[in-house]
C-alpha cells in the first residue's frame, strides 16, 4: 500500500541552505549538496528544494548547483524558485529534478499550470502555496509583496485543481520556524476539499507532530526543514516512531527500540556498559 511521506525541505538563500523563521528571519545552515547527501542517507522520503531568492531578485534557477546536488540524490527531488518558462523546466528535469514547484507565477498566471502539465504530465507539477491566517480566515500569501493577496485558500486549491495541478505543498507562514506543530485547523480545511496529494509544512518539532497529521487526516506528506537540520537522528527517529502505527517506508534495522527518549524525543545517553558492548557489534554494509 501507499506510504505516508516524511519530507525534508531545503530553503535556499544566496545558494546556501538557511533556517527560516516566519518567512522573515533567516540563519545560515550550510551547503545544499551536503544537506542532500545526509538526508538521502538518513532515508527521508523526498526532498523539496526551494530557492526563495530567485524570483525576488529576478534570477533563473541555479542550474549548475542543482545538477551537482542531484548527482547523489537517489530519492525524489522537487525544485522550486525562479521558474517562469517551459525551457527552464525542461532543463531542470534533464538535470535531475523529478518535480517542479511553482509559487509566485501561480498568483499572476494560473494557466501556466495547464501549459506545463500538458507537456510534463500533472504528476510533475507541484504548487507551493504560502498560507497566512488573516482575521480567522486562511488566505494565500504573496511573498514578493509580503502580504496576503486576499484569495481564500479554499478557492485557490479549487483553481489549482481545475488547471490540472499534480500536488499541493501548503506552507503555513504562522507556523514556519516556530516548532509549535503543524496547523491542524488549516489541514482540516484543506484535506476534505482536495483531490490531489497534499503536503503540509511549517511547525514540526517532534515525531508526534507528524503522527497527529497522519492519524487525523488524509494528508499524504508532512514536511519539515529546521527540525531535520537541527535535531539529531530526527529523520530515522520520526520514521521508526510512525512505523509502529502507520504505513511508513522503513527499511532499516535500526528502530530505536533499545533507546530511551526524553519527553521531547531527544535520545538519552545509554549506559556505559551498553556502549562498550556495541564496539564489538559489526554491521555489514549493504551490498548493492
Amino acid at each position: 500500500m501507499l506510504k505516508k511521506r516524511v519530507i525534508a525541505t531545503l530553503i535556499i538563500k544566496n545558494n546556501i541552505v538557511v533556517q527560516s523563521i516566519n518567512f522573515n528571519k533567516y540563519l545560515p545552515i550550510g551547503k545544499p549538496r551536503i544537506a542532500v547527501d545526509f538526508l538521502d542517507q538518513w532515508g527521508v522520503d523526498e526532498i523539496i528544494y526551494l530557492d526563495i531568492d530567485a524570483t525576488r531578485h529576478g534570477y533563473e534557477p541555479n542550474f549548475e548547483l542543482i545538477k551537482n546536488l542531484a548527482k547523489k540524490c537517489f530519492l525524489p527531488l522537487t525544485i522550486g524558485g525562479g521558474i517562469k518558462n517551459i525551457d527552464q523546466i525542461k532543463k531542470l528535469m534533464k538535470y535531475g529534478a523529478d518535480k517542479i514547484s511553482l509559487n509566485s507565477i501561480l498568483l499572476s498566471d494560473i494557466e501556466f499550470v495547464k501549459k506545463t502539465s500538458s507537456i510534463f504530465g500533472s504528476q510533475c507539477i507541484v504548487a507551493s502555496v504560502d498560507v497566512i491566517k488573516v482575521g480567522g480566515n486562511y488566505q494565500v500569501f504573496d511573498y514578493l509583496n509580503s502580504k496576503s493577496n486576499k484569495v481564500s485558500i479554499v478557492d485557490f486549491v479549487r483553481q489549482l485543481e481545475d488547471n490540472g495541478i499534480g500536488e499541493i505543498l501548503i506552507n503555513s507562514i504562522d507556523r514556519d520556524g516556530t516548532y509549535k506543530g503543524f496547523d491542524m485547523e488549516l489541514i482540516n480545511i484543506i484535506d476534505p476539499i482536495s483531490n490531489v496529494p497534499v503536503i503540509i509544512c511549517g511547525g514540526a518539532k517532534t515525531p508526534k507532530d507528524f503522527q497527529e497529521v497522519f492519524e487525523n487526516s488524509n494528508i499524504s506528506g508532512a514536511a519539515a526543514g529546521n527540525y531535520f537540520h537541527f535535531y539529531e537522528h530526527s529523520v530515522t527517529l520520526t520514521k521508526s516512531f510512525l512505523n509502529r502505527k502507520l504505513p511508513i517506508r522503513f527499511e532499516t534495522n535500526f528502530d530505536y527500540h533499545e533507546s530511551d527518549l526524553s519527553n521531547d524525543f531527544r535520545i538519552l545517553k545509554k549506559e556505559d556498559i551498553f556502549l562498550e558492548n556495541m564496539l564489538f557489534h559489526k554491521i555489514e554494509n549493504e551490498n548493492i
Binding site: 500500500m1 501507499l2 522520503d45 496529494p197 488524509n218 499524504s220 506528506g221
Partner: peptide, 12 residues
C-alpha cells in the same frame, strides 16, 4: 475510494 490521483509516493 477517497484516494488522490496522481499516485505519488513510496509503495511496496
Amino acid at each position: 475510494q477517497n484516494l488522490a490521483v496522481p499516485h505519488v509516493g513510496w509503495n511496496n
